[in-house]
């Protein structure tokens, strides 16, 4: 069984919700990314999403655009990120996913990418510009390699389509909280509760996780009531960007994720 599925089973038994953290790989360096993964696990993160930088991140807001650009300036590539996964896998069993636009993966070669990922201990992939209709070839390859391919659903996805997506996603269904790009927002829309509940209904046994715009413990706790977990990205990336040195990055991020964890676990 895939580490992601195992994790959700464990959370279900413990009656807890999943906390998934996103960081851009290679910011400020791949070495610190490795340390951050271990630190975030220690402080209560369940699953980690590593962002693969891309020159044209069309679904991302300013915070992740900036970090993506910084990573590219440091020549971070898919190949180097997979090497980091291999290294970190020796130290932890935390589920690891890559979030990458399709072109870097397509350019790497789908078969080669799936094979390498499996060998190095990656658990899944999220490709924000690969919708169901375009993913047929990749779906087969990823299933054969035992990689979870996570599909996204959004407020503009029809219920009929959501059912189809929920049936084809692996690991979990990524529900995007609003129309728009990644980034923090002060308020989360009112409709999200109903939307998540209907997504839950349609997804059956597949966990539903909500992301985009969640930036603090309160929001995380509130959203997690209606689904199986939350994803926080830009808020963490911003802390990394604003912290001066390695030590600060680790303590600040550790502090933040711990706050979120405690908020989510509070009865």
């Amino acid at each position: 069984m895939n580490r992601i599925d195992k994790k959700f089973e464990q959370l279900k038994r413990e009656k807890r919700k999943a906390f998934i953290a996103f960081i851009t790989a290679g910011v400020p360096s791949l070495e610190i990314t490795g340390k951050l993964i271990l630190e975030m696990e220690r402080k209560g993160v369940d699953i980690i999403e590593l962002g693969v930088p891309f020159s044209d991140p069309m679904a991302d807001g300013p915070v992740i655009q900036k970090s993506s650009h910084q990573a590219l300036e440091k020549k971070v590539s898919l190949e180097k990120i997979l090497l980091l996964v291999e290294e970190i896998r020796k130290k932890t069993e935390i589920p690891l996913l890559l979030m990458s636009y399709f072109n870097p993966i397509y350019n790497f070669g789908l078969m080669k990418f799936a094979g390498e990922s499996r060998k190095k201990g990656l658990d899944g992939v999220i490709i924000p510009d690969l919708i169901l209709e375009e993913a047929q070839e990749w779906k087969k390859i990823s299933i054969d390699a035992g990689l979870a391919n996570v599909f996204l659903a959004t407020p503009t996805t029809s219920l009929k389509r959501m059912k189809k997506i929920a049936g084809e996603t692996r690991g979990f269904l990524y529900y995007v909280s609003r129309t728009g790009v990644t980034g923090t927002k002060e308020k989360i829309g009112k409709k999200i509760k109903e939307e998540l509940l209907s997504a839950k209904k349609l997804s059956g046994k597949t966990p539903v996780v909500c992301g985009f715009g969640i930036s603090n413990a309160q929001q995380a706790k509130e959203i997690a009531k209606y689904c199986d977990g939350v994803i926080i990205g830009s808020a963490i990336v911003k802390i990394i960007d604003e912290s001066k040195d390695e030590k600060k990055i680790l303590t600040q991020v550790g502090h933040f994720v711990n706050q979120v964890r405690r908020g989510m676990d509070k009865k």
């Binding site: 679904a59 375009e134 599909f151 503009t156 389509r161």
Partner: peptide, 21 residues
């Protein structure tokens, strides 16, 4: 019907835009 000229074309977009397209 899927928007392909042989192997070229398609719709590589965020899910949010699917309904609009």
């Amino acid at each position: 019907k899927d928007g392909y000229f042989d192997e070229f074309g398609g719709k590589f977009i965020p899910e949010t835009l699917f309904f609009a397209l």
